[in-house]
Write a protein that binds this DNA or RNA. Structure first.
Lengths: 143, 143
DNA sequence: TTGAAATTGATAAACCGTCTCAAAAATGAT
DNA sequence: ATCATTTTTGAGACGGTTTATCAATTTCAA
């Protein structure tokens, strides 16, 4: 039994519902994806180059977008690139980013999330996803 | 006295500190920028084409990025383009974005901001700025 | 006014992500 | 297992956005 049986099941169910096929590449990419918090297509391309030198970048983009549709991943624009967050394993998280050294700290805060829901419903919105980034100086860079 | 004297002052101070020069183009772009909540470089290019047909797109990009460094603007990646938000005029605000029709609602929430400070200090960070975007469906698109 | 330094405009180039399409692989039926 | 159908893949072309280049122009302090 695979390490990622549950997520593999989610993927297969999505594939089944949409007349899509289960392929070696999709399995390979899902396995690699689930080991990360978040990753870019480019990073994954280099990581997987050793396992399968012929795996194309387009396939990685297509597959990561597929994961988003299947509810396994979430795309997030960060800098100029798109980060694909692994939401199946640890749930959603937000980011604290040091403008001095670039350090990134992940956090979760239920109270903030609850207030977000409040703001949304007050404006008639139903939240699908969100993005919260706090920029500042870490204790090291402040001195 | 110009309508945007305060922000012009902020810009001039930043220019002075960094051995940069005050130019006709920078003044023109700042005036146009401060009239907007948020704008893309391309939109501004077309807006200003009438006032100065020779103003180059590269200059607009350079200048909007300069405003970010001066603390007058904040860049935000939305879809494939970059939105430059005017943060000097109305203070910081966050966004509710409809994934159906693209409608953007601005909001402010002191409670959320307070909790952000809490999270940051718990991690030894001092916040300089932040970005919060809630994506979902507006009441119109939900039906 | 003069001269050093920064800025501009035009365009080339870089970059990210998507599209195209022929070849290959997966699935369901026989 | 084989076949026929449909989807997927890989490689590179492509499109849109942003940055880099560089000669000519402008700013600004002396």
């Amino acid at each position: 039994m695979s390490k990622h049986a549950k997520e593999m099941g989610v993927l297969k169910e999505h594939l089944g519902k949409h007349q899509l096929k289960f392929t070696r590449q999709r399995e390979l990419i899902l396995d690699a994806f689930l080991k990360q918090e978040h990753i870019t297509a480019e990073e994954m391309y280099h990581q997987l180059a050793r396992k399968d030198p012929h795996l194309g970048l387009a396939t990685i983009y297509r597959t990561l977008n597929l994961f988003c549709e299947a509810g396994l991943a979430q795309a997030r624009h960060f800098g100029t690139q798109t980060q694909y967050d692994n939401i199946s394993h640890k749930g959603h998280h937000d980011h604290l980013i040091c403008t001095g050294c670039g350090k990134i700290v992940e956090f979760e805060n239920c109270d903030i999330e609850r207030l977000q829901e409040e703001v949304a419903s007050r404006n008639g919105f139903t939240i699908q996803t969100h993005r919260l980034e706090l920029y500042g100086l870490c204790s090291h860079c402040r001195h």
